[in-house]
């Protein structure tokens, strides 16, 4: 999976989990690789964390589980984790 594809997958998962969390400006910056989003900022409840992990698994085939998100903490860390699992 290309970096750009992975960024889109993470962005779409964020949009599925936390409506309104990513505005147009953030989206452009994020897709360009210039924005690392701290998950703590997003007010993700348990439902949002589950929806995020489901969306990631559906789009990348990589299984992240909700408790991992707190450990990873940011979109950059999530991308690294997915890339490692994809090999």
């Amino acid at each position: 999976m290309e970096n750009a594809q992975l960024r889109i997958a993470v962005l779409e998962a964020l949009k599925a989990a936390v409506p309104g969390a990513v505005n147009d400006q953030m989206r452009d910056s994020f897709l360009a690789g210039g924005l690392n989003i701290e998950l703590a900022r997003l007010e993700m409840d348990s439902l949002a964390r589950m929806e995020f992990c489901i969306a990631i698994e559906l789009s990348t085939g990589v299984t992240l589980v909700p408790p991992q998100l707190a450990e990873l903490g940011s979109t950059d860390a999530i991308e690294r984790c997915i890339r490692e699992q994809l090999g």
Partner: peptide, 10 residues
């Protein structure tokens, strides 16, 4: 996977 289970349960 746990996510597949969660998807059905949700």
């Amino acid at each position: 996977t746990e996510n597949q289970l969660n998807r059905i349960h949700l």
